Computed example of a mutant assay.
Amino acid sequence: MNLLEKTRGATGARIIVGSAFFWAWLDALFMSLLFVRPEAEGLMAELAATSVFGLSLPWLALALARPAACNALLARKRAPLAFAALGTAGSLLFALAGASLNAATLAAGGLCAGAYMAASQLGWGATYCQDGERSATPFVAGGFACAILVDAPLLFMVPEAAAVFASLLPLASGALLATVPSEQRSYRRTPPPPPNRDRVAVLTSLAPEGASRHVDDASVRRFPRHDGVRLPAAPRVVLPDSR
């Protein structure tokens, strides 16, 4: 499937729209739309945004330390929905904290939203980079463009409605991420082993004694791309004509 088909196909459309909900939620967090009372739009809103990023870091560090376990978790069908539910719960806790000016509720919202933030970064980042920058560029551009459309209704809502609407965006994003094939949600793929150079020595040692042997480096043919990796064929031993 070429890039044009991938970005215009059903899976590509889900990646763009689903990630757009995530970016729109992030915009709402930065714009303090989850905090209705004017008293909470200052320090509490800033603490909320800081806690989301800060509390996502342990999850990201764990993903780097245990990539296999992280991939297995993200590949589960219900994992995106579970983290999306945490994102919605955290957003609603932020709204409740802003209404009641309660620090404990704010901290609980940060824990939930931080976990959602880390999972969404890994999941959507993996879908973006299926073919490296060739797929990441159109997916990122499309996600940002669609996020503007998702943000637009917030401008015409009363603050309470805008807070609830923004809190539901993680659920919409997670529902679409769950429909993306599990292998495309893997944020870290294991690279293929390097070609075994010992095979060259073995093949050349099998040539007749005294015959000049030459391994033509240009003869190392390459198979077509498969899952983003070009695999080398076995090297070819070129023997001189004895006639």
Rank of each mutant, 00 (worst) to 15 (best):
S100Y: 00
G123N: 02
R78T: 13
F144G: 11
A119D: 05
F144T: 13
D131G: 14
Y116M: 11
A126G: 05
T105K: 00
Q121I: 11
G123T: 12
G109T: 09
A107K: 02
A104S: 13
A95E: 00
A145Q: 08
S135G: 08
T105Y: 00
P138M: 12
A95S: 14
V140R: 11
M117S: 13
F94K: 01
F139Y: 15
S100P: 00
W124T: 03
M117F: 14
A104N: 07
S135M: 08
A118G: 07
L86G: 02
L81P: 01
A115I: 12
G114R: 10
D131E: 15
R134F: 10
A95F: 00
A115Q: 10
L106D: 02
A136C: 09
A82C: 14
A108V: 10
A95C: 11
Q121C: 03
L92K: 04
F144H: 12
Y116F: 15
S91D: 04
A89Q: 01
A113F: 14
G132K: 12
A118Q: 05
A113C: 11
C112P: 07
N102G: 04
R76N: 05
A141M: 15
A141I: 13
Y128N: 15
G90L: 08
A104E: 10
V140E: 02
A115L: 12
S100N: 07
T88C: 15
A103W: 12
V140F: 15
A107M: 12
A107E: 01
A136H: 10
Y116R: 04
A145N: 04
A89L: 15
E133Q: 11
G109Y: 09
M117D: 11
S120V: 09
W124F: 13
G98Y: 03
Q130E: 15
G90D: 05
L111E: 00
P80F: 07
A82E: 00
L111Q: 04
P80V: 08
A119I: 06
A85F: 12
W124G: 01
W124S: 02
G110Y: 10
C112Q: 06
L92W: 02
C129I: 00
T137G: 15
L101T: 05
A113K: 03
R78C: 02
P138K: 12
A103L: 15
G114P: 11
E133I: 11
A126K: 07
L101Y: 01
T105Q: 06
G125S: 08
Y116S: 10
L96N: 00
A113H: 11
L81H: 06
G123C: 06
A99V: 00
G143A: 15
G125A: 08
